[in-house]
């Protein structure tokens, strides 16, 4: 992994985390509150702030990536052709809208319904951002990235990180149905990730010499990291089940949720960091030039 890839790793993960948090917050927490015309709990206001901090972390790390950040504004010059230009456009749009909606939420916590449309639009922009982000890697010159598996992996990372964080955050304040829903996601997404692994590996085996070398790298040079990632994913599933069965409609018993939710969050972070590390590490350019 070259030095220039570390900022990219932090950038992609923090942005996917941010979008995941905002999207699931909108769907699981804000939607029921807006429907019932209830006031937004103070605790919930912090959620968007965390998503905003994650996005701003992305800004800092994205500026560490180019060799000459002084010209950063020129990166919007090739929107017609370059996925990188498009990513920067959606990145600016998403972060800007998130900043506004977070400010509105702190200023007018009881008027959620009036600006929920802006949050919905932020979610939509975030979803497009994650897709555009994945298209950057969809290059014929890099066979290990050049497939539908790249956007799938990015979206799964987005949903998993978002759901783990939200479950941990709303231990005593969320509805038990939303907690159950988040716990189901924490179980289902790593299951999909583990199930996709052999499919992806067998696809790589068929995708030419360079792709086969990527498999060889994963199964030889990076085998310990590969197994560690798998282990973290399986642990996340296990903690997801523990969390699911700890959720009761009785509020007092929700305290039992803290330990499995925290453990699921920690193992999720481990799995995603190693997964993204291997993503950058496994590339073998076409022709291996």
């Amino acid at each position: 992994m070259s030095n220039s890839d570390w900022p990219l790793m932090v950038f992609t993960l923090s942005m996917q985390f941010s979008v995941g948090v905002v999207l699931l917050y909108d769907l699981f927490l804000l939607f029921p509150i807006a429907l019932k015309k209830e006031k937004l709990p103070l605790r919930f206001q912090m959620i968007l702030l965390v998503a905003l901090v994650a996005a701003l972390t992305g800004v800092v790390f994205s500026l560490l990536h180019p060799g000459n950040p002084v010209n950063a504004m020129k990166t919007l010059s090739n929107l017609n052709n370059s996925w990188l230009s498009r990513e920067i456009l959606f990145f600016i749009s998403y972060s800007g809208m998130l900043l506004i909606v977070t400010g509105l939420q702190f200023r007018f916590p009881s008027a959620v319904r009036s600006y929920k449309w802006l949050l919905d639009l932020t979610c939509l922009t975030g979803l497009v951002l994650v897709y555009v982000m994945s298209r950057i890697y969809w290059l014929p010159s890099m066979p290990a990235w050049d497939s539908i598996f790249t956007p799938i992996s990015f979206y799964l990372a987005m949903f998993l990180s978002g759901s783990c964080f939200l479950l941990l955050f709303q231990l005593n304040s969320g509805s038990w149905t939303s907690q159950k829903g988040l716990a189901v996601l924490i179980i289902a997404i790593p299951v999909i990730q583990v199930a996709l692994l052999p499919v992806y590996m067998s696809w790589l085996e068929e995708a030419g010499d360079s792709a086969r070398q990527s498999v060889s790298l994963l199964l030889n040079q990076y085998l310990p990291a590969f197994y560690l990632r798998l282990g973290f994913e399986i642990l996340t599933i296990a903690f997801g089940f523990w969390a699911f069965f700890s959720i009761r409609s009785d509020t007092l018993k929700r305290r039992n949720l803290f330990i499995p939710a925290l453990l699921a969050f920690i193992t999720m972070v481990g799995a995603l960091v190693i997964d993204r590390f291997l993503f950058y590490q496994q590339i073998v350019p076409i022709g291996n030039l």
Partner: peptide, 12 residues
């Protein structure tokens, strides 16, 4: 040029 190195990835 900002030195983002994306051209290096894209060039086979």
């Amino acid at each position: 040029c900002v030195g983002c190195r994306y051209c290096q990835w894209a060039c086979p």
